[in-house]
Structures are given as C-alpha cells and as structure tokens.
Computed example of a mutant assay.
Amino acid sequence: MPFENYPVRGIAEHSLNALDRGHWPATLPAVAQVLDRGLTLSPATVFVGENGAGKSTLVEAIALAYGLSPEGGSTGARHTTRSTESVLADHLQLVKNAGTTRRGYFLRAETMHGFFTYLEENPGRNGDIQFHEMSHGESFLQLAVDRFRGPGLWVLDEPESALSFSGCLALLGVLKELLAGGKSQVILSTHSPVLAALPGAQILEVGPWGLRPRDWEDLDLVGNWKSFLDSPERFLRHI
C-alpha cells in the first residue's frame, strides 16, 4: 500500500474486544457494517443521513478512539460534564498511517456552550478568546480558525447547527485549506448539503442499509432540499 500522509487509514472492530451485536449501538446497521467489514477512510470523509441512523455515533467513536475529548477539544482537553458517549470507541481499532501526526481536534455543536466556558477558564497559547461574547456561529468559526492548523485529524459533528449559509461556506474554506496541505484529515457528519460538498470528500450515506458511498448530487439530502426549495408549498401542506 502506498505511503499516505493523513493520520487514520481505516477503522475496524478491536480484535480483543468484540462488541455484542445484540445491544446498541451494534444494532445500528451502519455500526454493525463497520464492525463486520471495517471501514476505509479518505483524507476527507463525510457522513450524511437521518437522525438516529448512527452517523454521529460513528464520528464520536472515531474521535474518542483517536484520543480526543468526547465533549470537544484536543487530546489534551479534560472538559467533561455528563458522560453520554456510546461504548463503541472501546471496541474500535484505528488503522493509522505510519509516521503521521498525533494532533487533532473534535468539534461537536451539541456541547459547545459548556466547552467555550472550559476554554475561557483554561486559555491556550493564543491567550483569551471570549467565545461567549460572540454569536454561536461566530464563536464556532473562530474556534475552527484558531485550532484547526497544520497536520492533524479534524473531526466535526453536525457543525451546521451553529452556522448560517455563509458560515458553512466559510467553514468549507477552512477545511479545504487544511486538506490542501496534504497531511490533514477531516471527518465530518452533517445534515447540510453545503458542508456535504466538501471538495474531494468521500461521502457515505448512513441509513437502514448501513453505509453506502454516494455522489453529492445523488444524495437524498440534496434531492430533498432541491425539491423543497423548488416548491415549498408541496411539503408545507402536509404538516
């Protein structure tokens, strides 16, 4: 296999710690598929799918297995409130590329308020950034710009919940620049057709079928948004 510069080549079930297939999250088809067959990751991998399909469960587990903080942050972050993460990370084995960086960061929209407080109370090398004085979207983008630098594994769970359309485009710019360096890796779960259009990304659609690779224009997500924008009244009369 040719030498790759990005951190994680793939994931598989841990050879010494199998997960009981009869219990959640192994009952999710996407998780079961990963455990049974493994999953090859690209420099950029985007997971899309309906709520409850398992995309955030997979993204969270990859981040934790890499050593990132479950509520956001780097491998050194120690912020924690209430533990809600699944056990999946304990049963995964990362297939890492040799000689790559161990740096990384995990951004998850659902825990950002508490995480911003943690960051303000524990300022990093760039000094104090008053995240709570910004809007949710502004603070999210500022964190990405400030922390996502150079080689590393950059994991994001549904960041669009904090971002406007222009904010999503701005985040795409940050991620595109990271990937252009050739030594970074982005793993992203999203409901946004904008973020799903990350240039060069492997797109995996998550659902009752498990995981399936899809082109952006063939995604249910994209088709549904196009249909709604073309004729919103067709959808609104049914609610």
Rank of each mutant, 00 (worst) to 15 (best):
E50L: 14
E110R: 15
Q33G: 08
L141R: 03
E110G: 11
H132V: 04
T40F: 05
F165A: 08
F165I: 14
R149I: 11
A53D: 07
G150Y: 01
P159A: 07
G152I: 05
T40I: 05
E60I: 00
A89C: 06
A109H: 12
G76R: 14
G114L: 00
L141N: 13
N122T: 14
N51E: 08
L172V: 09
F131G: 10
L153I: 12
F148D: 02
G150F: 02
V34H: 07
N97F: 01
V155D: 07
Q93M: 12
S56Y: 09
F140Y: 08
L88C: 10
D128S: 06
S42R: 01
G49F: 09
L171S: 10
I62L: 13
H136V: 10
E160F: 12
L156C: 05
R82A: 14
R108D: 13
S69W: 06
L94M: 00
P29E: 00
S166C: 01
V95C: 06
E138L: 13
D90P: 01
L39S: 12
G124V: 03
E85R: 08
R37T: 08
G52W: 00
R147P: 01
R125P: 14
W154S: 06
T27C: 11
L92C: 14
L163V: 10
F165G: 02
F165W: 09
T117D: 12
L94E: 01
P43F: 01
R108E: 12
F47P: 02
E158F: 10
W154V: 12
G167H: 04
P123D: 13
R37S: 03
S74H: 05
T84A: 14
Y66I: 06
S166K: 03
Y66H: 03
A32F: 02
L94T: 00
T101E: 00
V31Q: 05
T40E: 14
S164H: 08
R82N: 11
G72T: 13
N122I: 02
R102L: 02
D128F: 15
G167F: 02
S69V: 05
D146F: 05
L88Q: 06
